[in-house]
């Protein structure tokens, strides 16, 4: 049984309580000053202004008012663009997942055949991840022309950067014991990877692939803004022509697609992992 706490008046500790906050040393103090300076500078640099924001509120209200009710006049075209967007996301993700598998094996420390290949694979993955998908889309629009193929290629590269890293980490975290067992019976490297590493890493790789599809679906909407296919171009045209009711239909369609893909992904993850 826990004894009752004594009344506060009777508390008389032998030592003084420690300070609530430790006094920062000089490097910490300098870091704090630099951080605060950076925040203030960024506020100024972005022209952040509560006054302008408040002045813009009526404009937002007016656009929101014109968006409702959504226009159903071009529903068929919006539907086709939405299907194209999903196709871009699906094929870009599928191709990206397939191509990231061998890259991930090379980027896994205990599976790579050579240290140089390990570093090359890690650098490639990092490069693919660092360059934003919109930049890839711009490059591929120039390379293969306007349309969904450019967007699909951009998503594929982005997916390789995303999945390559997480696949490699999943493979590195697998239990080495079954791999050692297959190595002990004379199995080659490819057999060890296919029969022991991939089955062990599969749940994590599947989850990563589904997240990649969700990410690609959101990306494929934006890629249309630079002419890389999908529903983004429809949204851009509607906004530029002040057809806000039509734009709201497109935004709602995008919302439905993204939520549907997320829900399907969550369901698949629950069932398979």
């Amino acid at each position: 049984m826990i004894p009752p706490a004594p009344p506060s008046a009777s508390l008389n500790p032998s030592a003084a309580p420690p300070p609530r906050f430790a006094r920062p040393d000089l490097p910490s103090f300098v870091a704090w000053v630099l951080f605060l300076g950076l925040i203030v500078s960024a506020f100024k640099g972005t022209g952040f202004s509560a006054e302008d924001f408040l002045a813009g509120l009526p404009g937002i209200a007016r656009i929101a008012g014109e968006m409702f009710p959504p226009s159903l006049e071009r529903l068929d075209k919006v539907g086709l663009a939405l299907v194209e967007t999903f196709h871009m996301a699906l094929i870009g993700t599928f191709a990206g997942v397939i191509l990231s598998l061998p890259l991930a094996v090379l980027a896994t420390r205990h599976l790579t055949p050579h240290a140089a290949l390990y570093h090359a694979a890690r650098a490639t993955i990092a490069f693919f991840r660092t360059v934003p998908d919109l930049i890839w889309a711009l490059i591929f629009v120039i390379a293969v022309g306007l349309g969904p193929f450019a967007g699909t290629l951009a998503i594929m590269i982005d997916t390789i950067g995303f999945c390559g890293r997480f696949f490699a980490e999943a493979m590195e975290e697998t239990d080495r014991a079954p791999q050692e067992a297959l190595g002990a019976i004379g199995a080659g490297r490819s057999s060890v990877i296919a029969a022991a590493v991939v089955p062990a890493a599969l749940p994590s790789m599947l989850a990563t692939s589904l997240f990649a599809l969700e990410k690609a679906t959101r990306s494929s909407v934006v890629l249309g803004l630079v002419g890389a296919g999908g529903i983004g171009i429809e949204l851009q045209v509607s906004m530029e022509l002040f057809r806000y009711a039509e734009a709201s239909t497109i935004i709602l369609a995008i919302l439905v697609l993204v939520i549907a893909v997320e829900q399907a992904g969550a369901w698949l993850r629950r069932r398979t992992i």
Partner: peptide, 24 residues
């Protein structure tokens, strides 16, 4: 080689794990 902890591939069936012996 039989290990202290069987060292089977956990997500595969018993039959698949036995088949791995043929890799040898």
């Amino acid at each position: 080689f039989v290990f202290q902890r069987h060292n089977l591939v956990p997500r595969l069936s018993a039959l698949s794990n036995v088949l791995h012996g043929a890799l040898a």
